[in-house]
Every structure is written in C-alpha cells, then in structure tokens.
Computed example of a mutant assay.
Amino acid sequence: MLLYTTVGTNDLQRAGRFYDAILPLIGYSRQKEGADEIGYAADEDVRARFWVVEPFNREPATFGNGVTIALVAPTRAAVDAFHAAALAQGGTDEGAPGLRPFHANFYAAFIRDHDGNKLAAVCEQPA
C-alpha cells in the first residue's frame, strides 16, 4: 500500500479547482490545505494520501513520462463521471472510459490535468 503520492503544479488554485471538481466523483475529498499544498483522502480514510503541491525546490513543476497515478473508483459510472468532469475542467483525454485488457473487470479512464500529470480512475467491480 502506498503511504501517499504527489503531483506537482504551477498554479495551486487552478489545480485545486480541477481536483475539487473531479475527485469527489470517485470518493475523494479535500482534507488538508496549506500555502503550497492540497491533500485529498478517500472518504473512508482519515489521512490525505493524494497531494497536489508546488515543488519544494521552487523549480517549475513537470510530469513524469511513463508515470500514471491510478485511483480506485467505486463504480463504472463514477469512472465515466470522473472522465467527463476532467474534460469539462480543461483536462485532456488520455483514454476514454472502457474495459482494459488487464482483466475482465478492469474498467478505467485516463486523463491529464493542466500540468500534464496523468491520472486514471479504475473500477474493478463487475458491471
């Protein structure tokens, strides 16, 4: 289990609006915030495990090539809603909602945020 993960941003307020619009659709909400970070937690978790941060070294935020952060979604409809909301908020499509070949119930959608960070919402429950 991961303790936490972070994505960098060059505009924390814009990133906060983006993630506030899409993460609640898959069961995550803003739990913490500071001058240079925002933390989100799954509804059943008492600890923020997904952080949006301005880089500590004060250099511009960049994304990793080959990096994808996959978040658990409770339903396939939640995956669909996450993808649609991300696009409506100015994110980009990296893979429309649908089944993937990893196993019979791997239903996922992939997006990029304004800073180029790639995220997936994944539901592994049967339809």
Results as ranks from 00 to 15, higher is better:
Glu59Lys: 02
Thr62Asn: 06
Phe50Cys: 04
Phe63Val: 04
Arg76Val: 03
Arg58Cys: 01
Ala73Met: 12
Val53Lys: 05
Ala61Val: 10
Phe56Val: 04
Asn65Ile: 15
Ala77Gly: 01
Asn57Asp: 14
Ala81Tyr: 12
Pro60Glu: 02
Glu59Gln: 12
Val53Cys: 04
Thr62Gly: 04
Ala48Thr: 10
Ala48Gln: 04
Ala78Val: 06
Ala73Gln: 08
Leu71Lys: 00
Ala48Lys: 07
Ile69Leu: 07
Val72His: 05
Asp80Ala: 13
Pro74Ser: 10
Thr75Val: 11
Ala61Trp: 01
Ala73Glu: 04
Arg49Tyr: 09
Arg47Cys: 12
Thr75Arg: 07
Val72Arg: 10
Arg47Tyr: 15
Phe56Gly: 02
Pro74Phe: 08
Gly66Arg: 11
Pro55Val: 09
Arg49Ala: 13
Phe56Asp: 04
Val79Arg: 05
Phe56Trp: 13
Thr75Ser: 11
Thr75Trp: 13
Phe63Asp: 05
Gly66Glu: 08
Thr68Gln: 15
Ala73Asn: 07
Ala78Phe: 14
Ile69Asp: 01
Phe50Ala: 04
Ala81His: 15
Asn57Arg: 14
Pro55Met: 14
Val52Ala: 03
Ala48Gly: 06
Ala48Met: 12
Pro60Thr: 01
Ala81Asn: 15
Glu54Tyr: 00
Ile69Trp: 04
Leu71Cys: 02
Asp80Arg: 13
Asp80Phe: 11
Val72Ser: 05
Phe63Gly: 03
Arg49Ser: 12
Val53Asn: 03
Leu71Gly: 00
Val52Gln: 02
Ala77Ser: 07
Arg49Pro: 02
Pro60Asn: 01
Ile69Cys: 05
